[in-house]
């Protein structure tokens, strides 16, 4: 059977790069085609009919026509524009962090409807009045699960004994938690407090309704972020660019201290 010349899909726009004078190459995350790329022609002109439907962090119904190298986007209709995510400095930054993660952890053309749903749910959740740091941690843990890097948080990764309620150690290279006895078996391990481990376990096994009830103090929030980032850095072999931006924003916030996020 030959593939049809044109096709339609739901998609979340996760990246765009400039092409020629007025075009963009878009990276789309779709439920059944996985990550795909398409050329959107003329979207950098003000009268483009497509542009507003193809901005990053938009959930759209997209029509594409197959091309020799890249497919061309022929039509697009917004399903949800996620306006709150585009009108707040912090929410944009959190949103960009999500899509950079998805882009980095997914190969092209690999279907993963659960991950698509996770991204969509997380974008919705960011628009709610919740602790956004918890949302990011929840997203990271579920993403690891979906892409095959679910960290082992229930027992020691080396000796397989249940973890005691003491300070244990998270090892990015081993992909999970080490008990104090096995700590030396891995070169790098970050101490993980009893509370931090509890939170991670809860997030790993819960849904957003439960996760949204969590309230973390700043210290615990930083600890979890450090652990998750170390794991991401190990898996990707580099830092996320948007994580650096979040740090820069936080420094700014410390300087001016205006908003309450």
């Amino acid at each position: 059977m030959t593939r049809p010349r044109s096709y339609q899909t739901e998609a979340i726009i996760i990246r765009k790069t400039k092409l020629r004078e007025a075009d963009h190459i878009l990276t789309l995350y779709t439920p059944h085609l996985g990550k795909i790329q398409g050329v959107a022609r003329g979207v950098r002109r003000p009268k483009s009919k497509l542009a507003g439907h193809l901005e990053m962090l938009t959930h759209s119904q997209v029509s594409l026509a197959r091309g020799r190298n890249l497919d061309t986007i022929t039509g697009s209709q917004t399903i949800n524009g996620f306006l709150p995510l585009k009108t707040d400095l912090w929410l944009i930054s959190y949103g960009l962090y999500l899509i950079e993660l998805v882009n980095q952890f997914t190969p092209e053309h690999v279907e993963n409807p659960a991950l698509f749903q996770l991204l969509l749910d997380t974008m919705h959740n960011l628009c709610q009045d919740v602790d956004r740091e918890v949302t990011l941690r929840y997203f990271e843990l579920k993403l690891f699960h979906e892409v095959g890097y679910r960290p082992q948080l229930q027992q020691c990764v080396t000796c397989h004994q249940p973890l005691e309620p003491v300070t244990n150690y998270f090892s990015p290279t081993a992909g999970g938690v080490l008990c104090p006895d096995c700590r030396q078996t891995q070169p790098f391990a970050y101490p993980i407090s009893v509370n931090a481990l509890k939170v991670l376990r809860l997030l790993q096994s819960s849904d957003y309704d439960t996760a949204n009830r969590l309230k973390l103090n700043a210290q615990l929030s930083r600890e979890l972020e450090t652990i998750m980032r170390s794991y991401i850095k190990h898996l990707l072999e580099r830092d996320l660019k948007s994580a650096g931006w979040l740090d820069a924003l936080r420094e700014q916030k410390a300087q001016f201290a205006p908003r309450n996020h």
């Binding site: 960009l96 950079e100 882009n103 650096g244 931006w245 820069a248």
Partner: peptide, 10 residues
């Protein structure tokens, strides 16, 4: 313009 995912900061 600032573009965190492309590494362009303030």
């Amino acid at each position: 313009a600032i573009s965190p995912t492309e590494g362009v900061g303030s």
